[in-house]
């Protein structure tokens, strides 16, 4: 074996090991979702690396199906549950929260990039919103939300999701705007566009790759939030991650199989979105406005 093939092989092995490490939980979740109850909660202490006799029972369970009692251990004692509402709730609050963050964030980013709005300090003032842990502010926000009667409402979650992801939008989009020469907008203005027209017709099409990436990033953050949804909502408005954490039965405790099934469903929207905007994820495609 030459030194070169050796190096290639070694590299492949290392990459495979790292991938295995990171993908194992995903594998575990996927297989768990299809395991019948005796295999995800074996009383024998046996470990099932692969589901024997795979079943859709866990999926049926989280969408209101009668829990099947394959073990005779008393699943029947738990009440039927349905995750549909929580998934719709999550789609609404995470989606609209993302839209809100994008609307405000993109305008802010363009203002900062093109007009230096807010001077040198504003971008950092916005960034520092992200610098303390959410847990530190979530209780004061709970008081505020209760006072504003936003607690446990759709709007309450949409607003807070928009607010916490807004700094990401500003910082990501600003770097995309910075890469566009100011002459692009100026050319459009001399041709007769207003400032906004130049932004919409000449600038936005150039950053649509960056915009798609930012939107996906922000959506994933909102979609996967647990803490905020748990504290600021959770009785009437229940998001999917909160719902997921509460799947349990009297007899078995936490229902890992059903949780895995719901988790598998919950990773689908980000994955589908990522595939849909794949070509935009490769940043830089659109940044050839100036040939340097």
């Amino acid at each position: 074996m030459s030194a070169k093939t050796l190096r290639t092989t070694a590299r492949t092995v290392v990459i495979a090991l790292i991938l295995a490490l990171f993908l194992f939980p995903v594998y575990w979740m996927i297989t768990m979702a299809f395991k019948p109850q005796p295999q995800w909660a074996p009383t024998t202490g046996e470990t099932y690396w692969f589901p024997e006799s795979p079943t859709f029972g866990n999926f049926k369970r989280i969408f209101g199906g009668e829990p099947t009692d394959e073990s005779g251990l008393g699943f029947l004692t738990s009440t039927p549950i349905d995750a549909t509402d929580s998934i719709i709730t999550s789609l609404i609050v995470a989606g609209l929260g993302t839209v809100l963050a994008l609307l405000v964030g993109i305008s802010t980013a363009y203002g900062i990039s093109r007009f230096r709005a807010g001077g040198k300090l504003l971008p950092f003032a916005i960034l520092q919103l992200r610098m303390f842990p959410p847990i530190a502010v979530i209780i004061p926000i709970l008081f505020l939300w209760t006072y504003l009667q936003l607690n446990d409402t759709y709007w309450g979650l949409i607003l807070i999701y928009g607010a916490v992801t807004f700094p990401f939008v500003v910082w990501l989009m600003r770097s995309f705007f910075d890469e566009i020469p100011r002459e692009i907008a100026e050319a459009a203005i001399v041709d007769g566009c207003s400032n906004f027209g130049a932004f919409r017709k000449a600038i936005l099409p150039l950053v649509k790759g960056g915009l798609a990436t930012t939107a996906l990033f922000v959506f994933i953050l909102n979609w996967s939030d647990y803490l905020i949804a748990l504290v600021l909502a959770g009785s009437r408005v229940i998001t999917a991650p909160v719902f997921l954490s509460q799947i349990r039965s009297a007899s078995t405790g936490v229902e890992f199989g059903s949780q895995a099934a719901l988790a598998l469903i919950l990773i689908l929207p980000p994955v589908i979105l990522a595939i849909a905007i794949q070509k935009h994820l490769v940043r830089g495609l659109t940044f050839g406005a100036i040939k340097r």
């Binding site: 020469p181 002459e183 001399v190 007769g192 566009c193 207003s194 659109t286 406005a289």
Partner: peptide
Amino acid sequence: GKRNVGFVFQNYAIFT
């Protein structure tokens, strides 16, 4: 846009 001027920039400012 109302001045009836044409402007050519050093770096073209072409909409790529």
